[in-house]
Design a protein around this nucleic acid. Structure first.
Length: 725
DNA sequence: GGTGACAGTGTTTTT
DNA sequence: CACTGTCACC
């Protein structure tokens, strides 16, 4: 086949990487905006079209479903046909697929279900209760973290060295009990998907051999994000025979806190001998100004692989930096600037992103955007399949498929309430534990033996009958009808209908769940022999349901810096650049984490194509208290000559009185005669600057940051402030 | 079994 | 401040 369409769109460095020797491992260090995905896609095309590799022999791994979908789509577009037989997916998705095929060898029940982190946490809580451990002392979240961290290291309870440490012994005990609970319910959590697969391949040389012969090429995206287990997995699968083509950027490693190890990038060149390293440094995204700033910042990190982005593009506008008085002023500025930019034309709202370090910061921007009538969309937060009502409905579905799924049983047994109280459940749990039965089986046993009081017994009986009836009702129906039927029978809608406004959204989400089921594609390549309900349930656990519900209009984009990774926008705001917030206070303790914060900042800067606007506030209210802040060190680490400082416009002339300014704009911009930014003098506190105003008339208050006395809220009427200068 | 008062807590997040 | 979870009480 003609190689021209594959190679022509590439620059020299990209071409080198794409045409790397087919039998050798390769590490591609791809800077931000340097065409990382393009290289991966073209590499696949190159292998198939020129090296004669069958798509059947290709395994491409990513971290997110979105990245996997993009890679698949672009490969198809380039090759001009769906590359049948090629495996493209997330680590978890691929592990899941292998376990579905080899459930028997992996020691799993055929209908094993996937636990998402919320399910996992609930199961841990139940385990703690079963062990009669105090949740105050054994914090479920920490236990969850412990278990997942051990699994990510490839450790089973038996593999963990007894150091004689009591706390650790207990944690290992809980881990073991949790594993037991998973086994009994046929449940597999996210880390387990990976660990099981690793063990499956490791302990069955025949199987491993088969897959090594099948997958002639393994490609990995975002390699810097691999954790220990994922890396072990790649090494095992390769066995030094199958060449691995890894693409990553050590400067964009921002997930160390959840187990990713950047060091794998360095390790790669050792563990995969004869590996060649390719560097992609030409950036096609940002202006020279933005790149210069990003390069300058990242140089403050030690131990980088070393890479410096460049562009042939223009300098572009200077980076602007606004020093706000407080967080509200910051939000005001950002939204005003957004309106200006939109008014200038040539930009859609969706071209603008507001980035922040923590989700809590979004609220101010939301309020302000809402007040100004600018449509926006917040990324992150609860995803569709994580919503309470959706999970409830799915739990009914799960339970009707697998009655021994204790997690689902617990979840819905009394949701909506049907008179099965804590006392009754206590008895059921106890019997289950004593006899080694599932909750379902224990409940049935109790009823058969007539060991429950009439009222509780009847309620429980009705619940068991309901689930039974759901299973029967589902027979012969299409997937979406089954989902609709289960929701209907569950009584959830009626339950939420009583909750008013909040309940309405929940009911809408339940309807959306039926839509999701209707739109679900059963892919025999992935789902194999599974029933469509099982496949849908797995899909719901593995795909958080991004894009489900919620309309896609032209909206200003609000998200955390983490969520922005991999995206790009013509205009980017990076907000809250303050010590303690960004870099975050908790990462200041260890130097390694500070470097990760810096990389996070680097990721943020390199999201911007044309215009980059930074901001920080001199005072910020956190948990209801005002704090005076220092500008982020990252600001000082940018080349100052590229930055244009924007000062808030200080209004010197007295503004309208409170009484006359009705409808003249948001209240807090003006506090009667005074305005944010003005210098004032107070008899007792001395001189300071007004940093905030609220209320009007007799209740009008201003916040003044005094040079000596710090920040104070003063009621204008009594404070007797004098304007200075 | 549902309501209201209180204490405790508070990065980043995909699968 | 704003949210969660727990506890007492109706």
């Amino acid at each position: 086949m003609n190689a021209a369409p594959i190679l022509e769109p590439l620059n020299e460095a990209q071409r080198q990487a794409v045409t790397a020797p087919a039998h050798e491992p390769a590490l591609v260090l791809a800077g931000a905006g340097s065409g990382k995905t393009r290289v991966l896609v073209h590499r696949i095309a190159w292998l198939c079209a020129v090296e004669g590799v069958s798509p059947f022999g290709i395994l491409a791994v990513t971290f997110t479903n979105k990245a996997a979908a993009e890679m698949r789509g672009r490969t198809e577009a380039l090759l001009g046909l769906p590359p049948g037989g090629m495996w493209v997916g997330t680590f978890h998705g691929i592990a899941h697929r292998l376990l579905r095929i080899h459930w028997q060898e992996a020691g799993l029940p055929e209908t094993f279900q996937i636990l998402d982190s919320d399910d996992q946490l609930r199961l841990i809580r139940r385990t703690l209760r079963a062990l009669e451990l105090d949740e105050k002392q054994w914090v479920p979240r920490q236990v969850q973290w412990f278990i997942n961290a051990r699994k990510d290291e490839g450790l089973r309870p038996a593999d963990i060295q007894d150091t004689g440490d009591y706390a650790q012994q207990q944690l290992v005990r809980i881990y073991a009990a949790y594993e037991q609970a998973c086994r009994q319910g046929g449940l597999v959590d996210f880390a387990e998907l990976l660990l099981r697969t690793l063990e499956l391949l490791r302990d069955r040389p025949g199987l491993l051999d088969r897959y090594r012969r099948r997958f002639r090429h393994v490609l990995v995206d975002e390699f810097q994000d691999t954790n220990t287990l994922q890396y072990a997995w790649l090494k095992l699968l390769s066995g030094g025979e199958v060449p691995v083509f890894a693409v990553g950027d050590d400067d964009q490693s921002i997930y160390g806190w959840r187990g990713a190890r950047v060091e794998h990038i360095q390790a790669f060149t050792r563990d995969f001998p004869d590996c060649r390293v390719y560097r992609l440094e030409q950036n096609y995204r940002s202006t020279a100004t933005i790149l210069q700033a990003a390069n300058h910042l990242i140089q403050f990190n030690q131990g980088r692989m070393g890479k410096s982005l460049w562009t042939q593009g223009e300098d572009g506008p200077p980076i602007q930096c606004y020093r706000a008085y407080n967080e509200r002023d910051e939000a005001r500025f950002v939204v005003e600037r957004i309106r200006q930019l939109l008014a200038e034309g040539g930009l859609r709202r969706a071209d603008i992103a507001v980035l922040y370090r923590s989700n809590a910061q979004s609220r101010l921007f939301e309020e302000r955007l809402m007040a100004e009538g600018v449509p926006y969309r917040v990324y992150g937060g609860l995803r569709f399949f994580e919503r309470l009502e959706v999970k409830d409905a799915l739990a009914y579905l799960r339970l009707s498929v697998n009655r021994h799924d204790d997690a689902s049983f617990e979840r819905v047994v009394n949701q909506p309430t049907r008179g099965i109280g804590e006392r009754t459940l206590q008895v059921v749990r106890e019997v289950a534990r004593e006899r080694g039965l599932s909750l379902w089986a224990a409940a049935g046993l109790l009823l058969d033996e007539g060991r429950l009081a009439a009222r509780a017994g009847n309620a429980l009986r009705r619940f068991l009958d309901l689930i039974q009836a759901m299973a029967t009702a589902r027979e012969g129906l299409a997937l979406f009808e089954q989902v609709a039927r289960v929701i209907e029978m569950s009584g959830l809608e009626a339950h939420y209908a009583k909750e008013g406004e909040a309940g309405r959204t929940r009911i809408e989400n339940l309807e959306e769940l039926v839509n999701a089921a209707r739109g679900f594609n059963f892919d025999p390549q992935i789902h194999g022999e599974m029933s469509d309900v099982d496949a849908f349930l797995a899909h719901a656990a593995l795909e958080s349901g991004e894009g489900q519900g919620g309309r896609w209009d032209d909206c200003v984009q609000l998200m955390t810096l983490h969520a922005a990774k991999g995206l790009e926008f013509p205009v980017v705001f990076i907000t809250g650049l303050e010590e303690g917030l960004f870099p975050n206070a908790r990462s200041l303790e260890e130097p390694g984490r500070l470097e990760e914060e810096r990389r996070l900042c680097y990721v943020g800067l390199t999201r911007a194509r044309h215009r980059l606007i930074l901001s920080h506030a001199e005072s910020r209210r956190i948990y209801g208290r005002d704090h005076i802040t220092e500008p982020s060190r990252f600001l000082a680490e940018l080349p100052q000559e590229l930055i244009q400082d924007l000062r808030p416009a200080v209004q010197l002339r007295p503004v309208r009185h409170a009484a006359s300014r009705r409808g003249a704009g948001p209240m807090h911009e003006s506090g009667g005669e005074f305005r944010v930014g003005e210098r004032v003098r107070h008899r007792g506190f001395g001189e300071g600057v007004i940093v905030d105003c609220e209320g009007q008339g007799a209740s009008a208050r201003v916040q003044v940051r005094f040079e000596q006395a710090g920040a104070k809220w003063l009621v204008l009427q009594y404070a007797g402030l004098e304007r200075v200068g």
